[in-house]
Design a protein around this nucleic acid. Sequence first.
DNA 1: CGTATCGGATACATCAATGTATCGTAGTCG
DNA 2: CGACTACGATACATTGATGTATCCGATACG
Lengths: 208, 208
Amino acid sequence: MTDTAPAPSRRRENTRTRLMDAAAEMFAEIGIEAASVEAICERAGFTRGAFYSNFGSKEELFLALCARSAETTVAAVRERVTSIEDRGLDATGEVLQLVQQVLEVTGDDRLDVLLGAEIRVQALRNPEFAEAYLALNRALGESVTQLVTDIAQVRGLSLRVSAETATELLLSAWVSTAETALMTRRTPAATRAALGARLEQLVRLILE
Amino acid sequence: MTDTAPAPSRRRENTRTRLMDAAAEMFAEIGIEAASVEAICERAGFTRGAFYSNFGSKEELFLALCARSAETTVAAVRERVTSIEDRGLDATGEVLQLVQQVLEVTGDDRLDVLLGAEIRVQALRNPEFAEAYLALNRALGESVTQLVTDIAQVRGLSLRVSAETATELLLSAWVSTAETALMTRRTPAATRAALGARLEQLVRLILE
DNA sequence: CGTATCGGATACATCAATGTATCGTAGTCG
DNA sequence: CGACTACGATACATTGATGTATCCGATACG
């Protein structure tokens, strides 16, 4: 009873992906409203015929994009979690090094920050989008909470707040710092430094 | 050398204000791009003739709006600061009560949160808007920092981070919590409760 | 009380975006 | 190799938003 849809078709799947990639860029750069279907298709190398053959509307594409974004983000975090656990925490020692490691994964991507901001603002207005965003964030939060818990456990650290609270504080500080860095046109390196500093401060507050 | 502009004119000033009020609502509710000039004018009770007589473009109106928003927000914070200082901090005692007091001022306004999110996302894309947003935020930050400093001083508390860092953490947590509350369709009361809880946690981390 | 001017309304021309209906072709299967 | 079909391109009709040029009425001032 799975696969009620006829057939994904390799060709079709490819154009869907290209359209979604193009849309993600445009949404990030100029916002959903300002990104015309025409412009998205042009960037993807198609015409609107392809678009309307694959998606019913821009909104539908956006939802598909949210779902995909959620998968990839969470996957990235999980991967990082396991790779860190594999190395063994006692060896690296410093929590700060951990932060740096995490930063290497997600921190410097300008388009991700922009797209995230766009998704969030849309979610604030549209209940359907809100659901998608909250699902995305829940998954991300759980991954990070898992990471925090593991670290605390392995290193024998005790937190002054719950792992969930710590996660939310960390994520909100992260987003805020990343956005400010973008607005002040910092270089990726400077952005990472700012993120590292801010997260370090928060980590110190949360620990001990 | 002030007042090079001919004359503000009472009537004119009034329609400007009404247009800006209408625009603020629409920007908050559906975003800048989606808010047509026509729709803004209709809500304000004018036609586009009035609009183009007062503003060169939607963008220009938006900048004026940012400036006004900055003034009112900062004014509100400053007012609260002095009113708190007047009461005397030792009397009220608990920092948490302070948080509650502050919440009563700014916390529950749905439109403010939406408009803030919209302004931020625009600022991420447009350098001109970024400047306006950063100015707004700088002013707000300074006010809050002042508040934090005063409180710590009067009550003889020591912070584990700088007052500036504390301010930024508090503001980012505030925004994040308020936005999440909006997405999950919390009541104003529940939103205030969530904000209070989150800020309380942060305050505890920052103090002692 | 008349007149000049400021401020907003009206009317118009233009343009960009949308969605759909139809067509042509590349891939695929017998 | 030939035919069928899925997929994307093309063409078209419609809509809505924009900016400007012009008009009209209220307000201020002599």
